[in-house]
Structure formats: C-alpha cells, structure tokens
Design a binder for these strands. Sequence first.
DNA 1: AAGGCCGCCAACCGCAAAACG
DNA 2: GCGTTTTGCGGTTGGCGGCCT
Length: 313
Amino acid sequence: MGRPPCCEKEGVKKGPWTPEEDIILVSYIQEHGPGNWRAVPTNTGLMRCSKSCRLRWTNYLRPGIKRGNFTDQEEKLIIHLQALLGNRWAAIASYLPERTDNDIKNYWNTHLKKKLKKLQLSGEDGGGRTVNPISNNHHQSFSKGQWERRLQTDIHMAKQALSEALSLDTMNLRSPSPPSLGPANACTYASSTENISRLLENWMKSTPKSRSRTSLGSMSNVCSDSTTMESTTPTPAGQIMTSSAVQLGFRPAKIEPNGVLKEESKESSVVAPPPLSFIENWLFDDLSVGNGGDDHQDLVDLPLSDASELFQD
DNA sequence: AAGGCCGCCAACCGCAAAACG
DNA sequence: GCGTTTTGCGGTTGGCGGCCT
C-alpha cells in the first residue's frame, strides 16, 4: 500500500498561480512563517496542495531570490559544480543562495547543456579534448568507496558553503556593490515582490476588510524598494533577519508557540568559518581569473583532473 | 497576416529522506 | 523499532511567447 498522493483531494487547483493566490500565500507566511505546509491550504483557503504552496514560495515568492539573467560568474560556478556534484541541483543551489534549484536546473537544461555541447564539439574538432570529463565519465567509474568519499566531501562542502556565504556577506557589507555581482543584483526580487507589493496595494484598496493589516503592511515593506534590501527584513512573529541573511537563503529561527526560539537547521549553528577547502579555492581562483570574456576557452581549461583527486585517497 | 515551430520557465509528479508519534 | 506524515529533491511536462516561414 503506497502513500496516497498529496493532491488526491478533489477540487485542488492546478496550473499557474494567480496574483490573488500569491497574496494570500505571502500574507499567510508573513504571519506564520514558512513551514507546516500541510496546514497552509486549509488555513488560507487556497485550493492548492501543500506541495504546490511550498514550491510557489521557495521558487518564486520567497524574499531574496534573484531572477533574470545569470552572470558569467554564476554560469561558471554552475558548470563547475555540476561537474563535481552531478545533477544535484539543491546542492548546487546552496552555492548560489539567490538562485533556486529550479532556476538553476532550468538554466542548465535550456542554456548550459547546449553551450557545453557546442564547446565539446568544437573542442573535439580542435584536438579531441573533451570539455567536461568529470560529468561525462566519473559517475560510471565511481567505486562504492569513492561514492562514500564523495558524499563526505559534499557534506563538507555544504558546511563550508554556509560559512563562506557568511564571510562573503560581511565583505559585501564593506563594499556595497561588488563587481562580481552583475546588474541583476540591483533588483533581486523585483520581478516578484515588487509586483506583489503593488498588487497588495491595489488589493487592499479593492478589498479593505478582507486582509489583516499587519501581514500585508509588512509585506509591502519587504522589498517594495529592492535597493533597500541591505537592511532588516520584517519576518513573522517578530523575527528579524538581515536582508543579507534572507538573500543567502537563511530561514529565520522559528519561534515556538511557547515562545522558545528554535534553530530551524543544524547548519545554522556553524560558528567560525573553517578555512577554504581545495574545492572553494579552486572554484574561486578560477572565477577570479576568467572574468567573463566572450572567449569560452576558460571553460575548456578547467582543472577538472585536479578536482577528481578529491575522490581518491 | 497566419500558422507552425521552438525555446523558456513555472509548475507538476513521483520518489526518497527526514521527522514525528 | 515501526508505521505514518511531512518535506525536499530531481525529472518531466504543459503553456505561453517569440521567431520563422
């Protein structure tokens, strides 16, 4: 007997979300915080399944999401990480906190796959060199022991990604507009929150009694001007997060019903950033060297053979 | 101008892992 | 320890818009 599908109920709405649904979901999360998705449809009256609500929030409505074109740096990082981790988009997304795994996956499938294929073809024509030996071959050649080591490496990488993000964040505070971040960074949430905050305003005018003031009011503050993101972001139940933390994808600590502050994830308990591992050094060395020219030879010259040593004794 | 084709992306589906009782 | 519920992840699909013929 398998588990029944979560959307078994009749009358569950599918397809694109309407602005009204977005508003309802956002205001609910503003009030209660993300989590307990099972309760969201019943508490909000949304005719959506819990999964759909969670996905809508994490991939579209969540503050701190950068939308629009990927920068050269982001692109290279994705290519590097895909070569290392394979199609583990969530792990890759942990290195790009402003991007969702869905975004990265889509971008890979629609842009980077083709780009690499092209490069691979041109590479083979020009001397038979393959672009991405790790992603092409390493999965098949992994022994069990190598696979375990790879998992351990991933765990280590995830931890370091967090601490690294923290250290990058402090750097960003010192220099507000780092050159590594492209123009898209200027408005990280414009295409969603900005629109929604406009909708909220309009909606409040049209239905003044139907929404709670607090949640909607605070929502319109979240990112109505995304250039002011580097401040504090109001979060439900009195939680305050710096926008940097929001951008980095950190969730606010949960306040339990009894008022106890609870850490939402174990990772957030990391205190001191460990030294950069080989991978990080390798990634960022390369990123800092190739500065996004139109010559993609730097992709071909990635030191992937060095990276593969990670998985050997 | 109209129809077909193609690319992009939001959303869905199924499975697995984690959390919970 | 075990069964159930919830959450997270990755693959895939469907709808929409732009481009081409």
